[in-house]
Design a protein around this nucleic acid. Structure first.
Length: 270
DNA sequence: CGACACACCTGGATGC
DNA sequence: TGCATCCAGGTGTGTC
């Protein structure tokens, strides 16, 4: 579910409800995520005020005076604001009880998500190796070009490598490559600089548009206030195998690259 | 180091 | 209706 636009949508939706609020208590119903939630997480945040809410790649960061809480939504996670009295479902693993009378609630059916504490998030092992943020000037064609020389890996996998660029998952890798006219299976090291320039622009454009639309809801993604995202209506290749390409009228194909479904137009993408 | 398979976990869609 | 199978938005780890 959540790639960069969905996490950003979540951040924007939550910020007005969370920033400046004090955490009265942390309720952990199910600590067994991909990595078990450390006991430390509850004691560190209790009684502390959320100073700021930020995002790095697909990670959402709650900043406190004594450190940072790192949250990753995995494949099926969501964060939302609920009434103090709202009953918890079977996949509602963590609540932050806020001094506003509301709770911040983490739901994650597949439990691939992460909740971790760090004295400084950016120095934490999970974030340290992340590549540039795609919506900043740190992300540029020459960087991609230089890093890709000699690499035989498919450009789609290269684009989804978070050390190369942070926050791009399967949906937006497919969409960006379509918009750039690049075949997803092409070796990353065999793409010219000018085509990486097109790709960088395509990545920026697709991420911006998705954030504007409130993210992509395929099954169950909801933003911080429980709203669905509407970018799925603007997807041009993802999930569209067998349908007509909006550009050329050809048929959208689906192949496997790196064990992930990969959608593209064989006529538009080379 | 790079390429690749697989692990974690649940729910929904599909097919018989 | 019931059951088996496959698939899914992510990413750290282990193998060659």
């Amino acid at each position: 579910m959540p790639e960069l636009p969905e996490v950003e949508t979540t951040r924007r939706g939550l910020a007005p409800h969370v920033v400046g609020r004090r955490v009265l208590a942390l309720v952990i119903r199910q600590p067994r995520l991909r990595e078990p939630i450390a006991r430390e997480v509850a004691t560190r945040v209790k009684g502390r005020t959320v100073l700021r809410l930020s995002r790095r790649g697909k990670y959402l960061l709650l900043h406190f005076a004594n450190g940072d809480l790192i949250v990753h939504l995995g494949m099926s996670g969501s964060l939302r604001i609920v009434e103090e009295t709202a009953e918890a479902g079977s996949h509602d693993h963590v609540d932050w009880v806020l001094d506003s009378g509301y709770r911040l609630r983490f739901r994650d059916p597949r439990r691939f998500g992460t909740v971790a504490w760090a004295s400084s998030a950016k120095a934490h092992a999970l974030l340290r190796a992340l590549g540039p943020e795609p919506l900043t000037s740190d992300f540029h064609a020459t960087g991609l070009f230089d890093r890709s020389r000699g690499r035989r890996v498919a450009v789609k996998q290269f684009l989804m490598d978070h050390r190369v660029v942070a926050g791009i998952g399967n949906i937006y890798a497919n969409e960006a490559l379509f918009r750039a006219g690049i075949h997803p299976a092409r070796a990353a090291g065999r793409i010219a600089l000018c085509r990486y320039e097109r790709l960088v622009e395509a990545v920026r454009r697709v991420l911006h548009e998705a954030i504007e639309a409130g993210g992509t809801t395929l099954r169950d993604f909801v933003g911080g206030e429980g709203q669905a995202g509407y970018f799925s209506q603007q997807l041009q290749v993802y999930g569209r195998a067998g349908q007509a390409c909006a550009e050329c009228g050809g048929v959208i194909a689906c192949i496997r690259i790196g064990q992930r479904s990969t959608y593209y137009c064989p006529r538009c993408q080379r």
